[in-house]
């Protein structure tokens, strides 16, 4: 008889624990304004990433199409998996000296692990992390980018 009462008791106790759990879920079911989900593709305009968010490496240019990159190659050395390639060229300055400047700053977005070591190492602050996060493209070759814009040149007064 005693075991029978225990058996019946355990059934009611079990149902009670289920009700406690359902109290929590029921609370959220009847208060849908407490939802925390976002309607992602629709809220693109309001969606602002944090300023430190590491989406991609970009090179900042000013309004005269000038950048800060001297082509020193420190970012290339610091990159752990070779996603940055620096191609430099030598030009003749007006006073007849040879000078190496950047030709192409090639960045392979597909290989980048967003570790921030290149940005941290850059002595002139030429490259920074951008906040764009929707990088999907139809062709893999589109992931290889040239960061310095065509026709751009180095800003006056940047120390080598």
């Amino acid at each position: 008889m005693k075991s029978f009462i225990e058996y019946i008791g355990s059934i009611f106790k079990g149902i009670w624990t289920l009700l406690i759990g359902m109290k929590v879920t029921g609370k959220y079911f009847f208060t849908p304004w407490k939802n925390v989900t976002q309607q992602y593709p629709e809220n693109r305009d309001q969606l602002v990433m944090f300023e430190r968010f590491r989406g991609e490496v970009i090179m900042t240019h000013n309004e005269n199409n000038e950048h800060l990159c001297t082509g020193c190659g420190i970012c290339e050395i610091n990159c752990p998996n070779g996603s940055i390639e620096i191609i430099s060229k030598s030009i003749l300055t007006p006073d007849g000296k040879k000078k190496r400047i950047i030709d192409q700053h090639i960045y392979h977005l597909g290989m980048c692990t967003f570790c921030n070591l290149c940005v941290k190492a850059c002595p002139t602050g030429a490259i920074v992390m951008g906040q764009k996060f929707e990088h999907a493209v139809w062709d893999r070759s589109l992931l290889t980018k040239v960061l310095n814009q065509p026709g751009s040149k180095i800003e006056e007064g940047v120390k080598e």
């Binding site: 990433m49 944090f50 430190r52 968010f53 590491r54 692990t113 967003f114 570790c115 921030n116 992390m129």
Partner: peptide, 12 residues
């Protein structure tokens, strides 16, 4: 994490 470190999972 994202605000301070810049990434959510692979924080580095």
């Amino acid at each position: 994490f994202e605000e301070t470190c810049g990434a959510r999972l692979t924080v580095n």
